[in-house]
């Protein structure tokens, strides 16, 4: 069976709710039934076939071609299978994802992977704000899985992160790892101001010391930390620059905090 492929005919005039389009929801549906699925956009609903050309039948392997940042919530609640998004993806990509793999060849919007529990999201380009972060009113952001951003991520990356791993090969914006509860965020580029703000626990692993750290993150000095080799080995399978030997060393400067909230998180900077 060939992959179920949805080709967007033209860029939509308004944002479309694509949260229905997850492999487990499409499993077993005939082509006509897939085409009849309703997509909400603005104040009206349209049939999927009104906007997309549909080909292929294997819903476990979903491909969205000519994708747009106006396609919101792709892969919401996904449990298995793969989604390949050729182009950009909108906000809420992979929200509450429970498994499977999402690949975006372009950029992704805000709240990517929010509430994600398992699986992996790979963004070839940049990612918006609150990547793996908590939605307003939610206590936790990502609760598992891996989010790999080959480009840059916006502000508040990993806000309220509870578990899982966010890897940013480029730069990350302000308040990276803010209010983290646990989990790991690693950034190869620079991070904006106030990284680790109000973090409770978890690990923020950086290749460069941020220009502006919260004053309530205290310096614990340089150390060899054995767990880093385990962590870096786990990244090796992801085909990421984190697996490069240059950053596989275990020696880091360790900052702990945020002491303003009695936090026991850590910000590690490779030395």
């Amino acid at each position: 069976m060939s992959a179920l492929t949805l080709t967007l005919r033209e860029q939509p005039g308004c944002s479309l709710d694509m949260s229905l389009l997850s492999p487990h929801r499409l499993a077993g549906l005939e082509k006509a039934a897939v085409g009849a699925l309703p997509l909400s956009g603005g104040n009206r609903r349209q049939r999927l076939s009104d906007l997309f050309d549909i080909s292929g039948e294997d819903a476990q392997e979903l491909v969205i071609v000519n994708s747009s940042k106006r396609l919101l919530g792709i892969g919401t609640g996904m449990t298995s299978g793969t989604i390949r998004i050729e182009g950009d993806a909108g906000d809420h990509l992979g929200e509450n994802m429970h498994g499977g793999f999402i690949e975006v060849t372009g950029n992704a919007g805000h709240w990517t992977g929010s509430g994600m529990r398992e699986g992996m999201i790979l963004i070839a380009g940049d990612c918006g704000d609150f990547a793996g972060g908590a939605l307003p009113g939610n206590r936790h952001g990502m609760r598992g899985g891996t989010l790999l951003v080959r480009g840059n991520s916006g502000d508040r990356t990993g806000d309220h992160l509870r578990r899982g791993c966010i890897l940013v090969e480029g730069n990350s914006g302000a308040f990276c790892g803010s209010r983290m509860v646990a989990g790991t965020i690693a950034v190869l580029g620079q991070v904006g101001p106030r990284a680790g703000f109000a973090m409770q626990r978890g690990t923020l692993l950086l290749s460069e010391t941020p220009e502006q750290l919260p004053p309530t993150l205290n310096d614990c000095g340089e150390h060899e930390l054995g767990f880093l080799s385990l962590l870096m080995d786990s990244f090796a399978a992801l085909s990421t620059r984190f697996a490069d030997s240059g950053n596989s060393k275990n020696r880091v400067r360790r900052y702990v905090g945020d002491l303003a909230v009695n936090g026991k998180g850590e910000l590690l900077v490779w030395v």
């Binding site: 598992g144 578990r163 646990a182 790991t184 626990r201 690990t203 150390h223 060899e224 930390l225 054995g226 767990f227 385990l230 962590l231 080995d233 786990s234 026991k264 850590e266």
Partner: peptide, 24 residues
Amino acid sequence: GYQISKLIDGHRCWRIPVMDGEFI
């Protein structure tokens, strides 16, 4: 209370601070 949990590749490891660094 200073121990740290890390879930790596599905394996949970504990980092326990000791006098020569950390016991994993």
